[in-house]
Design a protein around this nucleic acid. Structure first.
Length: 290
DNA sequence: ACCACTACCTGAAGGC
DNA sequence: TGCCTTCAGGTAGTGG
């Protein structure tokens, strides 16, 4: 049972979007009967008093902002959730006769017991995830949220915006794409994939990219994210129950973690190379990414 | 202001 | 078989 749900995933925008939709399906308009904490902190403190403020409320909506999920509660407060590296929710049937933590493993930190016979268990082995509870009116000004840059699918994210953001930066484009203050939601995987599609080297200095290539990059970021969300969405449609048992996000990455393999571009004879930038792996083709 | 590096954390994978 | 090292990565903090 425990091995039936995905453990390893790296939640970037498409994954968080998919999980938010999935959570919304199960949580929406359900009363949260109780919240059980199995430890008092994730990346940040998760005090018992916060669990008690969540319990007894309905979740009205769950929206995504960058890699964060914002669940608005009927109490007028909003639960901010970040999945970090390894955060995942799974749903198990709730049995009122037994201890709600019966199904929990060693890294299952938070259990949301719902009115509708399900419980949502938050698991996060590496504990890079976090949750915080704030008045809904203050959610957008929460320090974690307020510092986020534009949403990739908002009208504000276009070539003019990106060109303006890159103009004053000397560092490599790859690091800029990971900067959540510029664009909210891109992570290492989709940054690599977007740059490959756009034919731009991850090492290229931000202020040395011609405008027409920035136009292309914006298009590629849109396409990569849209396809990834569609892949997650199709997984969602296959689910009869939101138990997470089916494979998640089975993407075929073109470059991410493909070092040593031939460049997938039919016109290119290069191979995928791995380099380290700002302490993070980048995968790219030296021949067709310039 | 910008940029790079490191700590945080644990499981998986590879080396010997 | 088993121990050890390395690596993965989002974010915050530090120091150049």
């Amino acid at each position: 049972m425990l091995q039936d749900f995905p453990i390893a995933l790296m939640p970037e925008l498409p994954e968080v979007e998919t999980i938010a939709r999935q959570l919304c399906r199960v949580f929406a308009h359900q009363k949260i009967v109780s919240v059980l904490l199995r430890r008092s902190n994730l990346r940040r403190p998760f005090p018992q008093q916060m669990a008690e403020r969540i319990a007894g409320n309905r979740i009205d909506t769950i929206r995504r902002r960058g890699k964060y999920m914002l669940a608005s509660l009927s109490s007028g407060e909003t639960l901010i959730i970040h999945l970090g590296m390894s955060g995942i929710f799974r749903f198990v049937p709730s049995n009122s006769d037994q201890d709600p933590t019966f199904m929990c493993g060693p890294h299952d930190h938070v259990v949301f017991v719902l009115e509708n016979t399900w419980q949502a268990i938050y698991r996060d082995p590496r504990r890079f995830g976090l949750m915080d509870l704030v008045p809904s009116a203050e959610a957008n000004s929460h320090p974690l949220i307020a510092s986020l840059g534009v949403e990739p699918f908002s009208a504000n994210f276009d070539a003019d915006y990106l060109a303006g953001a890159l103009r004053d930066r000397q560092g490599p484009i790859k690091s800029a794409l990971l900067d959540q203050r510029l664009i909210a939601g891109l992570g290492n995987i989709y940054a690599c994939e977007s740059l490959w599609r756009a034919g731009i080297s991850p090492r290229r200095r931000c202020n040395r990219i011609a405008f027409h290539r920035i136009v292309r990059l914006v298009d590629c970021i849109h396409a990569v994210l849209r396809e990834a969300i569609a892949a997650g969405g199709s997984t969602l449609r296959d689910h009869k129950l939101p138990d997470g048992a089916r494979g998640y996000f089975q993407h075929h990455f073109q470059v991410y973690a493909q070092d040593g393999k031939p460049c997938p571009s039919p016109k290119c004879s290069g191979k995928i190379t791995k380099i380290v930038q700002s302490g993070r792996s980048s995968f790219y083709c030296r021949l067709c990414q310039r």
